[in-house]
């Protein structure tokens, strides 16, 4: 159960053990029903590697992301990050961890202040650190924008003036401003056009090699997951039902759900069984 086995004595960056997250769902009759969104999930991610979690909506993958990003408290189990358990921390300590594990959503538009310019959005997390001068903040913010492929003339634009791909680049730049070691990408490519998906996927690959970033790539798109990840975990009903390198998952799927997901990837084949 580990990602990237190139270095035996390397410490995993993230180690999740038997993670459980349940919600109480009160019914009309008044009795409580326990819904287990994440039901005993374990995995490890090594620094600089990408773990993809694929599954249908409702399989618990987003809840997993929220637990990992310290935005939800797991019901039980533990999450080790850089060797320390972060699942039971107090609120104040969780906040410092959150900087290290950044979350990118499907549609970042709602997380931007619509009145702020691109530069201000990226500069805000830098300014909050409090130790930088105005000029330093500006320089760093511009460098971050350049790194994610947003040209300097974009700095004055408002989020509404950006395309979907550019907004996602901006979200990544803002996340990088906090110098995180893990990026959780929760369906970050799903809402984009095919050509834009490829652009952002390439950006993720570039950032990984330049900054040694670690990714948790959450998606329902098995093809993109296989393209980006070192290892794929297939989730269903809150559990990881299958895990392995992309080749193995694609070529020898072991479970029905994986086969279904595989069959659901639209393919450019021209067999037309139902036509005529």
């Amino acid at each position: 159960m580990k990602v990237s086995d190139n270095d035996k004595d390397m410490q995993p960056l993230v180690r999740v053990e038997n993670l459980m997250k349940s919600y109480a769902n009160r019914k009309i009759t008044g009795q409580c029903e326990e819904v287990r969104a994440v039901d005993g999930v374990s995995f490890t991610i090594f620094p600089g590697a990408t773990l993809a979690v694929v599954g249908e909506s409702g399989s618990g993958k987003s809840t997993l992301a929220l637990c990992l990003a310290c935005l939800e408290k797991p019901t039980s189990g533990n999450i080790q990050f850089e060797g320390a358990d972060i699942s039971k921390l107090a609120e104040k300590e969780r906040r410092t961890i959150r900087r290290k594990i950044q979350l990118i959503f499907q549609d970042p538009a709602s997380s931007f202040n619509p009145r702020w310019s691109v530069l201000e959005i990226v500069a805000e997390p830098l300014a909050l650190q409090g130790s930088l001068s105005r000029d330093e903040i500006r320089l760093r913010a511009l460098a971050l924008l350049e790194q994610v492929g947003l040209s300097p003339e974009m700095e004055r634009r408002l989020p509404a003036e950006l395309s979907g791909g550019q907004r996602q680049r901006l979200a990544i730049a803002r996340a990088l401003a906090l110098e995180p070691s893990v990026l959780i990408l929760d369906e970050a490519l799903s809402a984009l056009d095919c050509s834009t998906q490829a652009q952002i996927a390439n950006l993720l690959v570039d950032l990984q090699s330049a900054r040694d970033m670690t990714y948790l790539f959450i998606s329902h798109d098995l093809a993109m997951a296989a393209h980006l990840a070192d290892e794929i975990a297939v989730m269903n009903h809150g559990r990881i039902v299958e895990q392995g390198p992309p080749d193995k998952i694609l070529k020898q799927p072991q479970t029905e759900i994986t086969r279904e997901l595989l069959a659901a990837v639209p393919r450019m084949t021209f067999a037309r069984p139902e036509a005529q």
Partner: peptide, 15 residues
């Protein structure tokens, strides 16, 4: 630009 589903085994560098 669409990732092919069954590209061959990858050598260390991501394509």
């Amino acid at each position: 630009s669409i990732p092919p589903l069954l590209d061959g085994p990858r050598d260390g560098n991501k394509k």
